[in-house]
Design a protein around this nucleic acid. Sequence first.
DNA 1: CTGAAAGCGCTTACAG
DNA 2: CTGAAAGCGCTTACAG
Lengths: 341, 341
Amino acid sequence: MAVTIKDVALKAGVNPSTVSRVIKDAPEISEKTKSKVRKAMSELGYTRNAAAQILASGKTNTIGVVFPPVVDKSSQPFFMKILTAINETARKFNISIAIATGHTQHELKKQVRLLYSERRVDGFIVLYAGKIDGIREYLMGNKIPFVLVGTPSDHQNEITHVDNDNELLGREAVRHLAGLGHNHIAFVTDTQEGEVFEERYQGFVDEMKKRNLTSSLLNFDQRFSYGNETAFVIMDDVLSLKVLGKLKEEGVRVPEDISLITFNNSVFGTIIHPFFTTFDINVTRLGAASVEKFLSLLNDNSDYHEKTVVPFKLILRESTQERQGEFKAKHNLQEYGEQDV
Amino acid sequence: MAVTIKDVALKAGVNPSTVSRVIKDAPEISEKTKSKVRKAMSELGYTRNAAAQILASGKTNTIGVVFPPVVDKSSQPFFMKILTAINETARKFNISIAIATGHTQHELKKQVRLLYSERRVDGFIVLYAGKIDGIREYLMGNKIPFVLVGTPSDHQNEITHVDNDNELLGREAVRHLAGLGHNHIAFVTDTQEGEVFEERYQGFVDEMKKRNLTSSLLNFDQRFSYGNETAFVIMDDVLSLKVLGKLKEEGVRVPEDISLITFNNSVFGTIIHPFFTTFDINVTRLGAASVEKFLSLLNDNSDYHEKTVVPFKLILRESTQERQGEFKAKHNLQEYGEQDV
DNA sequence: CTGAAAGCGCTTACAG
DNA sequence: CTGAAAGCGCTTACAG
């Protein structure tokens, strides 16, 4: 069989418990013993048995990652990206991840419960926010540690969560466009559900009002139509691609006739010219922060829950330009420095 | 603490070992005892402790899923889709999954080794094929059970793998197009690496030759140009979207001037009109089959390695049509029944 | 058909 | 600073 702590102890001439202490780098062990034991470990090619460690210590050192209960997670590059980021950050802390997926909420909840009740995970990172659902109820009701990626609709003060400032995102989009001289701007969406929409749209509306500009909300569906707008703020870059297709069909030029700015900076932004001016929401950081927050949640098991706001960044590409035949107002120019928030 | 096998045993008035046997539904236990024990389990809300079970049995009942060592897994919806399928199939067999990701081969290999040496997984499902690399060398060298999704370049006979018939896919694409009267067809790609390209292209070439048609291979890059082709077979639907964008820029109409057929049937196929005629490669089945195959590999640990070919399906949409101003040859018509393979 | 016992490979009070 | 021992919650020969 594989080499165990006993074999190492024998070789190093110490007690197994000493080997165990060396593994976790306990401060009470002398450097001399440590190096002796480490030598034996590497010579024998020792690796811990995860199951034994989990059983004895009661800590699983693994986090369950919960995907949203929808059929098509694959249409949003976000999920694969954040999963990768979470996994790689977790590795640095020597912790593993398990995943929970399900087409329905019911199925998903079953998986979540199972992961926790079989003591496979110490807690969860939940990849969707919005309104409370059965899974979050279960987690909160049983005081299971978890962090949310996104902003919850309720109990915000009792849930550790990690998100971008979506309102600011909406406002910055307007600023960029207004800075280019646009004053008829529409917000385009294909969903009116969810915190992300609500917040981005809210930020958009606020900033438009502040500037006394004419704003409108456009729903993208079969019979998508618009007025005299010269710029669109679009919910995400998948939708932007659809909008772009539609505009091109109608002979509208982007960005000459209409400027497009969008969010997320996924691959969809650079498929067809004009490539999209977009906000990078820093998914990698979102993922990394979620595991860091989870870990600190686990350590001080006080009831302290904070929100972490991950900064975004404007990526200038081809889909926005100065409004044709207009002078850009001087006072708009100065705002460029604020792109990083 | 949580309820254990001991608590259940006490309540049911049996020995813990009997409870253990009831859990795995051992045939030697009487129905009477079973139901007594089960009652106690459900009354106490018993769930097994995974770590204890793993430690005692030596079986982890978890599979490691290995993603390709590339930075951007998120640009291909394939990965999230197959991960979901694998996870859901695994659940049915009551087995868990762990994941290994890494930007470099080195990093990835470290993760794979760790998963195995810490005895967290029984083996792996590897989500990329092609040429042998350090990871596959490690797996084969140590006789670690694994199944490959895709077709390996070497040792095909010694590796259990699951794939579509990519050559047939290439051939069927030609058949569909030829059936619509096209006789100048190009294969468009942005990579000449990998089995997938090689096989699809090979099938394309073979079928074109068989029909005495003029074929060409076009590389999609900055200065993409073509000749008198009236139809393209395109490597995947992400690339197709790029090609479509380019063609539209040049005023070429799809499908009126040029028909487009592609593979994979991801979300990218229905973003911009014309929606793509594409082959659905059945990723869900690919994922399910990979875990089934893995499980049977684990059971009969003979050295038997088979290939599983998952059928595909032609999805007719808007990007292909009969060649303008041509009669469709009669003998092409009859081939429509073969779309499902 | 069921029980008693040993063991899987760790961790962690408790002593000294 | 280190050792000896008990225990984590299961499984699985071995007996009967």
